[in-house]
Amino acid sequence: MVFEQKHILGLEELSSDEIRLILDTAESMKEVSERDVKKVPALKGVTVVNLFFEPSTRTRASFEIAEKRLSADVLNFTPTESSVVKGETLLDTARNLEAMGASVIVIRHSMSGAPWLLARELSSSIVNAGDGFHEHPSQALLDLFTVREIKKEISGLKIVIVGDILHSRVARSNIWGFIKLGAEVRVVGPPTMIPRDIEKVDVKVHYNIENALEGVDIVMMLRLQKERQESGLFPSLREYSRFYGLTRERLGLAKADVIVMHPGPINRGVELSSEVADDMHSVILNQVSNGIAVRMAMLYLVASGGGSG
């Protein structure tokens, strides 16, 4: 199968076959990361720009390592507040980078849809590294990869995503990914943080965490942004963690071999009790190394795939 997409903007646009191809390619990429010389010449001569409008040490570092392992020329561009104040538009910034020879642009932006603007107006391949509340495809793909590695088969699994679904791009991408690969997806959180009509994408909505955890194979905890309290979506961290925090006791309701995932960084004692956080440490580290492999696969496939070059 040939990857026909020029961009990777979100999992909503990808078919289940395309998602599987990325995961399969990531397996080969993971093997590269296990060698002494962790580098292949596949993207020699290709310039990749990491255009990060939002601070994100982890995602940016992971993309950068992935690019370097593929021998791409890497340019990190982190627009400061001042360049935004100076009035340069996103499009002008990106056009400049393209003029410097970038053929793949990895973009992180606080506003939903920003990568779409670039995909429409530029000729480079665009990889979405997280846009607003919309999608975070590389995170979801690495979550899928990690789950597939542990459980072998995603189809038929039950996953619950816990927390602020409304403001979570990780949740949206994972919902698409797990549904497309045949899992049963539930979401649970305070009703103020559940987006309108989400059940229309075949997601079961719960407001009670105990009910939601019943018999699941995977628990995905989202990070709670404390500023949501100020906008009145929940009364206090204490109350939130009482009703939606994951404890060992609650985890007992899930299947015995349940996997707990978290996109990080963790608020200990808020969405996860410390003991649960310690228990799940190995999966988190596994996720980090898988993240590099998945991002290598994404970059390789868009650079070699449909329409680019």
Binding site: E12, S112, G113, D131, G132, F133, H134, E135, R169, R172, P195, R196, D197, I198, K200, V201
Partner: peptide, 13 residues
């Protein structure tokens, strides 16, 4: 508009 489409797009409704 606040609804299914805004949910999908991650835009405030």
């Amino acid at each position: 508009n606040d609804g299914f489409t805004s949910t999908i797009l991650g835009l405030r409704g």
